[in-house]
C-alpha cells in the first residue's frame, strides 16, 4: 500500500482503521468504489442517502448514523479527511471522496461539532459542500447566523451560488447585510452568478450605497450584470467618482443594462486618466 495523505497528517480515525486492516487498500481502488458516477450523483456508497428535511440537523444526524452503520470506512475517511494545500497555499477539500452526497452530511456535522475545528478548516468544509453534490442550502443559511468568523461566513455565502433558490436568496440577503464588508462583497458578487439574483434588487440597491467602497463597487457591478434598470440613476452618478475602479464599474454596469443609453453618457470618459476606464468607455461607444 502506498503512503497516504491521510496517514501523513496523522488522523486518528483512519489510523485506527488501518491498524485493523480495514482500509488496507490503495486509495485509487477505494476512490473507484466510492466515486462510481459522480456526474449525476446517483451512486451512493452502500445505499447511504442524504436528503435535507425541514429539520436539517436531524437529517444530518440520521444520514451520519446510517453511514457509520453501513459504510464505516467511508465515514471514517470523511471524518478524518483534512484539507490539502492548494497551489495558492489555501486549504481545500478535493478528490473523489468529497464528490459524494453523503459527504455533505459529514461535512455539515463536522461544521457543527463543538470546538477543535479552525476557521480555515471550517471555511474549507463549507467551500467543499457544493462539490459533494448533496443538499446543503438550508443548513448553510442557518449556520450563517451562528458563525462568528467572517471568512467562514464569506465561504458560506459563496457556496450559495449552486444552492436551492429559497436558501440561496435567503442566505445572500443575509450576506448583503452582514457586519463584515468581505461577506457583503462576496454576497453581492455571488448574487450576480444566479439567474434569480434580481429578486434581491432592493438589497443590492441598498448595498450600492454601502459605506465600504469595495462593497459599493461590487453591488454596482452586480446591478449591471443583472441588468436592473432601476439602478441606472444611481450608477450614472458614479461615472464621476474619484475612485477609478468605481468609474470603471459604473461604465460597465450602464453598458450592460442599456448599451444605447450608456453610449450617450460615457463619452467624456474616453479620455479618462485611467486607461481601463477610457478603454471601457470607448467600447461602450462602439456598441
Amino acid at each position: 500500500m502506498k503512503s497516504r495523505h491521510i496517514l501523513a497528517i496523522g488522523t486518528a480515525l483512519l489510523l485506527s482503521a488501518c491498524d485493523d486492516g480495514s482500509t488496507d487498500e490503495p486509495n485509487a481502488e477505494r476512490q473507484a468504489q466510492v466515486q462510481a458516477n459522480p456526474a449525476d450523483g446517483t451512486t451512493q456508497s452502500k445505499d447511504v442517502a442524504f436528503v435535507l428535511g425541514t429539520d436539517w440537523r436531524g437529517s444530518v444526524e440520521d444520514a451520519v448514523a446510517q453511514l457509520r452503520a453501513r459504510d464505516p470506512q467511508l465515514a471514517d475517511a470523511l471524518y478524518a479527511m483534512e484539507p490539502r494545500s492548494t497551489r495558492a497555499g489555501t486549504a481545500r477539500f478535493t478528490g473523489p471522496l468529497v464528490r459524494h452526497p453523503v459527504a455533505a452530511a459529514v461535512f455539515l456535522d463536522r461544521l457543527t461539532a463543538e470546538g477543535g475545528t479552525s476557521a480555515e478548516v471550517r471555511a474549507a468544509l463549507v467551500e467543499a459542500l457544493p462539490r459533494t453534490t448533496g443538499p446543503f442550502g438550508p443548513a448553510v443559511v442557518a449556520l450563517l447566523a451562528e458563525e462568528s468568523d467572517a471568512s467562514v461566513r464569506a465561504a458560506m455565502v459563496s457556496s450559495l451560488r449552486t444552492a436551492d433558490a429559497a436558501s440561496a436568496l435567503a442566505g445572500l440577503e443575509l450576506g448583503l447585510s452582514d457586519s463584515a464588508a468581505n461577506v457583503r462583497l462576496t454576497a453581492a458578487r455571488t448574487t450576480a452568478r444566479r439567474t434569480d439574483g434580481m429578486q434581491l434588487k432592493e438589497a443590492l440597491l441598498t448595498a450600492a450605497g454601502d459605506a465600504e467602497l469595495s462593497v459599493k463597487r461590487e453591488a454596482i457591478r452586480t446591478l449591471g450584470v443583472l441588468r436592473i434598470e432601476a439602478a441606472k440613476p444611481l450608477i450614472e452618478a458614479e461615472l464621476t467618482a474619484v475612485d477609478a475602479d468605481m468609474r470603471l464599474a459604473a461604465v460597465r454596469a450602464l453598458t450592460r443594462i442599456d448599451p444605447v443609453d450608456a453610449a450617450s453618457r460615457v463619452g467624456s470618459l474616453t479620455a479618462d486618466a485611467d486607461p481601463r476606464v477610457a478603454k471601457a468607455a470607448r467600447k461602450a461607444l462602439e456598441n
Binding site: 490503495p26 485509487a28 490539502r84 477539500f93 471522496l97
Partner: peptide, 9 residues
C-alpha cells in the same frame, strides 16, 4: 500521487 485527495495514476 495516490492520496485521499486523488490519484494521478
Amino acid at each position: 500521487v495516490d492520496a485521499d485527495f486523488g490519484t494521478n495514476a
